[in-house]
Design a protein around this nucleic acid. Sequence first.
RNA 1: CGGGGUGUAGCUCAGCCUGGUAGAGCGCUGCCUUCGGGAGGCAGAGGUCGGAGGUUCAAGUCCUCUCACCCCGACCA
Length: 574
Amino acid sequence: MKASEFHLYTTRETPADAEIASHQLMIRSGMIRKLTSGIYTWSPLGLRVLRKVENIVREEMDRAGYLEILMPAVQPAELWQESGRWDQFGAQLLKISDRAGRDFCFGPTHEEVMTDFVRNEIRSYKQLPIVFYQIQTKFRDEIRPRFGVMRAREFLMKDAYSFHIDEQSLDQTYWQMHEAYSRVFERAGLEFRPVKADSGAIGGSQSHEFHVLADSGEDVIAFSSGSEYASNIELAAVAAPAHQRPEPIQPMKQVDTPDAHTITELVEHHGVAIEQTIKTLIVKAAEDSGHAFVALLVRGDRELNGLKAQNHPMVASPLEFASEADIRSATGAGPGSLGPVGLEMPCIADQEVALMSDFAAGANADDKHWFGINWERDVKTPETADLRNAVDGDPSPDGQGTLQLARGIEVGHIFQLGTKYSESMNAVVLGEDGKSHVMPMGCYGIGVSRIVAAAIEQNHDEHGICWPLPLAPFELALLPMNAKKSHRVREFSDQLYAELREAGVDVLYDDRNLRPGVMFNDMELVGIPFRLVVGERGLDEGQLEFRARTATENESLPVDGIVAAVLERLGTRD
RNA sequence: CGGGGUGUAGCUCAGCCUGGUAGAGCGCUGCCUUCGGGAGGCAGAGGUCGGAGGUUCAAGUCCUCUCACCCCGACCA
């Protein structure tokens, strides 16, 4: 491709509304343009990358024997009413109506359409197992779209659905898919981890997420130093500490703390060790608990794990924090002055909290805290549960090694769905026994457009994007120096461009007659993995300069045999 | 949906408080010079100041309403 015939439009300025590197770089390199909130146009440059990802995904799905189909983006309400999700899915479901007033939605996912398709197509266990997939534009009306295509409302997703005669077959396909997913991310050249995940509202027995590791990731994953254990931090269990509760030393005393409404302020202004403080969080209680609210106690330096909390029988699910007004009427104090002493509601303490002594907590009166609190002596020892997020160095839940935490971007998620949809939508086949069987299902998603952003988060520097070769929009940039004046350089470059194309190299030939600095900066911003520079000086010596995007030094390559040398350096390609 | 903020040239923003005939940088067009890490000069094109209403002799600026976008809280590929 000649740059003069391509649409390259880069900008020096960082757009004001782009916060993270991938979003900034995608805008600056001109890969995407925002049409409206959470909805983007892919430019020719961006589309090249998107297609690379898409093709890797497609090839790996095909290799595994899965069958590609294409389902409608617009779906009738009836199907969603049949599964019960028309009302359940919530505001993320974009509902639309046609001229006759019939209801439709723009598909956020395709379980219903898929199940409908299969219940009409598949009649016999002999046709099972079967896996269909599609690569489709989805729409989810996110409350807060952000980070460009990372969390867009409209996005490109690969979704696959498997159908089985029994759970065992589902389990088998599930692990095949796990393998296929790993191949996808390996081929894309990304550093990733599959982790155990919460199956959430979708239910089912098994679920894994695939995360691209990046410091800017929104998810935290935990993996063991001593085993294969890896899970989303939501699921990482924390073992109860083994030590005994120390004997009380301090008397309990009330302290005026008008300057301390957060744990940090309490620590800074009153010299309390943060490990000796307790955070009291008031949440709504489960409906059948007989209470309106429940207090959750975690050590001051710990984070509440929302999933663990809402799974507790006393706690409402989904987790809902009490409003400040609710807190005030229930405790008589504001959220900055709460504690277990004298609290008129059930308390659930994290395991380690029950083993603390001489600790500080709010007094349930504004601007007052109790210091030197001890369980039993000053307040009843509460019920305990595992409520906090794991931290670096916690023992691994499987007993082998310790946990390390890393940040990740969720780019894939696989589920064993069971019969949730096949049952409500009556997707059955005749079994070997001549009877109807409801088909267990699996569903498997990959965020194709999100992978593009995730790859940039993982691979960029101060100059721009550093594409892994398999995702790069072009493999090689051919940069002539001062071609406007130098006929030699231009003619040589024209010729070399033709030869490289002939050899199958995906080359971007910058024939725009720009100054060298502009070309270098553009190619680095766009992230072309390799560049080849043609200049008068080099031609005099019979040499060209070759350089990898991530390298700091040029390599001199002789003009003779240049194409072969370049091919060798590009390495194995698809 | 709550809370906060911003809408002025293609982009990034100043001007608004204190009303008086629309600005800068980048980008774009033309010419000249320059040419190995985002050059310089000259000449240009480009804005119903998000929209509607109001106050005023006069509104980008003040008031009301409205729309859009962004940021902080509950979800997900």
